[in-house]
């Protein structure tokens, strides 16, 4: 099973919101995946076990794994497209 990681400033509110939304959407699409919300300050430690990184905080850093934007899961704008993108990555 693939691991998806979502990070925000404290690993409490925003990342949790996105993680539970992605988890729900994965279940709806029958994609087996584990979604984790983490503190961005400890991202380096956590990213090693992840297959995909959903970023709420855009930065120039490359973590060496596929990264997609988490903002659509918060605003609802373009959410389906982003989810298609995620599904594509997870199927690989």
């Amino acid at each position: 099973m693939k691991t998806i990681i979502v990070a925000c400033g404290s690993g409490v509110a925003t990342s949790q919101t996105v993680a539970s939304k992605v988890d729900k959407l994965c279940k709806e699409r029958k994609i087996p995946a584990k979604v984790m919300a983490v503190d961005i300050k400890s991202l380096e430690q956590n990213i090693r076990i992840a297959d995909v990184y959903i970023s709420i905080a855009p930065s120039n850093k490359d973590y060496g794994i596929p990264t997609i934007s988490g903002i659509p899961f918060l605003t609802g704008v373009g959410m389906e497209e982003t989810m298609d993108q995620l599904e594509e990555i997870l199927k690989k």
Partner: peptide, 26 residues
């Protein structure tokens, strides 16, 4: 809330972490 304003030109207000990728913050 979203249902009340479909199609209107608005910005979605979010919590601050979308700024957390800026290294200056940390």
């Amino acid at each position: 809330m979203k249902k009340r304003f479909p199609g209107k030109e608005i910005y979605i207000g979010l919590d601050w972490p979308f700024l957390a990728g800026q290294p200056e913050v940390w």
